[in-house]
Nucleic acid binder design. Structure first.
Lengths: 174, 174
DNA sequence: CAACTCATGTAACCAGTTACATGATTCA
DNA sequence: TGAATCATGTAACTGGTTACATGAGTTG
């Protein structure tokens, strides 16, 4: 049930169309909660049917502008302060680790160093993003920075772990 | 498509029944790829229909013992060495961060310190697990340790990040 | 013999992905 | 006027969760 709260959260800042929201999912939210077009339009319909959103304007090309209602704000707040976030549980990258014993040690090591490389690239990508965003002191920018920092620390940790793990597999011949 | 590979991976080490496999998903794989009973039985049926598994014994209470076939091993290997792991993308914990600006700073800080606490508890839980497992040098134990280390580093990083983030929100009055 | 564990299976539902389908407006 | 962008919607499918249903064998 997080998609609806993502929509409510975006619309809490400013009213927008499905098309506008979609772009937020492809950019800022891409690393926290991506969503597809069909999902967004479908959920907007349900949210307005339930009175959490209103259509407050209609523009060219059938554009509908959605605005959050009071009960929408209440639902968002409830989700933020009362509902415990579910932990992320699934990682096919980590699942593979359990089965590396079915490969030759050299192959297992190749897998782990490749993962280190993926994490390093992701870290570099986020650093580039960090450099391109204007970090004024606005509230949105503060929390955006906090979220980005999570990605930076995560990718760094993954890189360090994968390099360490690769060493565990074929220890340097002593 | 990772569930089937998790099953193949478990059966690559030893033949087992659906019931046996289910227990692996509740214990060792719980933190990498959990699965439910209905999912496991369903997938075992599909895998044997496709010839990746065979039923090699039947026991009391309708127990069926599944064994991996050669094409099952080939598929597992393919998945391990050729298929790029998909990155984990969804975190409702992180999604909430984007919308903390709709709360009072004090409430946002409460959220972040609570997340630090959750991560600390999880780290402690994994440490306890680490102490209770016999870490002989067996291949399974080596890779199990590597996976556990991932959890330890992740929870530590999450704790550090959440504490740092909480400080960003209401900086100590200077 | 009662309670517990072992053991499998199915049905309904929910969230998310991919693909199909359509058309208006803007801009070079 | 042709291409790009804006804009919405639906259908089919996949993976995962919850709940229902049944029954055999084991242990105290």
């Amino acid at each position: 049930m997080s998609l609806r709260h993502a929509l409510l959260g975006l619309l809490a800042n400013r009213s927008a169309s499905g098309y506008d929201l979609l772009k937020s999912f492809e950019t800022s939210l891409a690393n926290a909660w991506p969503a597809t077009q069909s999902q967004v339009y479908g959920e907007l319909g349900k949210l307005s049917a339930e009175g959490l959103l209103d259509v407050t304007a209609e523009g060219p090309r059938g554009r509908k502008e959605y605005s959050i209602t009071e009960s929408g704000r209440a639902e968002l707040r409830h989700w933020l302060v009362e509902v415990e976030p579910e932990r992320v549980r699934r990682s096919s990258m980590l699942l593979r680790v359990f089965f590396l014993d079915t490969l030759a040690p050299e192959e297992a090591r190749t897998y782990l160093t490749a993962q280190a490389e993926v994490a390093a690239e992701r870290n570099a990508g986020l650093r580039a993003l960090e450099a391109n965003v204007p970090w004024d002191g606005s509230p949105l920018s503060v929390y955006g920075r906090v979220a980005l920092e999570y990605g930076l620390r995560l990718s760094q940790m993954q890189r360090d772990w994968a390099e360490w793990a690769a060493e565990q597999v074929t220890p340097p011949t002593t």
